[in-house]
């Protein structure tokens, strides 16, 4: 660990002011990503702005039916919130499928959106890694890439999968990220928040230096919809997704009026699959339909040495989730 300055912010304004537009400053929320990576010397902020004192820990229903979640609401609190349980089951389930109880008690909504990849070559601090050391190369492409590397949205410069479960549910639901920064407040569509690695894998999200996430606002729930999160992994708890699906369906008898499908574990960002949604829309539910639709999500998938299985596994995650939801 390096020595760093430490400031405590009592409000979002203070946090933004204390941060400035310096890239080498980090906000400290739950610390479950940040402190881990600082101890590994992978993140090296020279200043940390503690935002645990900012009052961003409320969940409120807006007049237009949307749900506004403070950036400091913990993953546990969000998963257990009755409005979330009732209207956004997929989000509650995704949160509870993540990490462990202790971690969820610390982890926050803003921090979860901002969590870093689990690629071991990124975390080891020595291997070639374009994310950590732009231009150095990507050790994962020719290395071990079974569990935490993607098959969708990869580039020749980075193939790390986005680790979050929460974000997969959010991108399926539809959401807006509210931020405050040195230049004032603005909103970012959740779908535009996380960036594909392309040839700039060090740039992971749409925040400008010094911008603070203050809230995530979930779109109003789809009328009469059902939703669920299905996470597939080696062991049955406490592991990042090998493949997961967040599915929301609105049924009309046996016909799918509307479907929203997103995937985790397989993409370099929380992965919405509009082509699957389009294939499902207006069609009668059947296993055959689900299989055909799920296949579409992986038409452009690229298999690496050890993760080709994610292509069929990701489809299975979608198909099973759909068949359970439409049978219910």
């Amino acid at each position: 660990m390096r020595h760093f300055d430490y400031a405590r912010a009592g409000s979002a304004q203070q946090a933004v002011a204390a941060h400035g537009s310096d890239r080498e400053v980090s906000f400290l929320a739950g610390g479950t990503t940040l402190l881990d990576l600082v101890k590994l010397d992978v993140m090296q902020p020279h200043k940390i702005v503690d935002i645990n004192g900012v009052a961003l820990d409320k969940i409120e229903r807006l007049d237009d039916g949307r749900l506004r979640i403070g950036a400091m609401v913990t993953n546990t609190a969000l998963a257990r919130d009755q409005r979330v349980v009732d209207d956004y089951a997929v989000l509650s389930q995704a949160l509870l499928a993540g990490a462990s109880t202790q971690l969820r008690n610390k982890a926050t909504t803003g921090g979860n959106v901002m969590q870093r990849v689990r690629c071991p070559y990124f975390r080891d601090g020595v291997s070639d890694c374009n994310k950590r050391e732009p231009g150095s190369g990507c050790a994962a492409i020719g290395g071990v890439n079974r569990s935490v590397h993607a098959v969708l949205g990869t580039s020749d410069d980075c193939i790390a999968s986005h680790p979050s479960d929460m974000c997969v549910a959010m991108i399926a639901i539809g959401a807006t990220v509210e931020v405050q920064g040195p230049e004032g407040a603005r909103e970012i569509d959740f779908a535009d928040f996380h960036l594909l690695p392309g040839d700039t894998p060090a740039r992971e999200h749409a925040l400008e230096p010094g911008e603070l996430i203050t809230h995530v606002i979930l779109d109003a729930p789809l009328e009469g919809s059902r939703s669920a999160y299905l996470k597939l992994r080696d062991r049955q708890s406490y592991q990042f997704a090998l493949a997961s699906s967040a599915v929301i369906v609105q049924m009309d008898g046996n016909t799918i009026r509307e479907a929203r499908v997103a995937m985790g574990g397989v993409g370099t960002k929380p992965w919405r699959a509009p082509e699957v949604e389009a294939a499902l829309k207006g069609r009668p539910a059947s296993e055959k339909l689900f299989a055909e639709a799920a296949k579409l999500a992986f038409e452009n998938a690229i298999a690496y040495a050890h993760n080709g299985y994610k292509i069929p596994l990701g489809q299975q995650a979608i198909v099973r989730n759909l068949s359970d939801l439409t049978a219910a």
């Binding site: 689990r118 070559y121 975390r123 080891d124 290395g143 071990v144 062991r235 708890s237 990042f240």
Partner: peptide, 28 residues
């Protein structure tokens, strides 16, 4: 579950932590 994976190019143990070296948990 258990296997320490080494990068075949340079003999580096890759999954060297509690998150990535998978042992059974209570749910298993």
């Amino acid at each position: 579950f258990e296997a320490t994976e080494y990068d075949e190019r340079n003999a580096r143990p890759v999954n060297n932590d509690y998150a990535e070296y998978v042992v059974p948990v209570h749910a298993d």
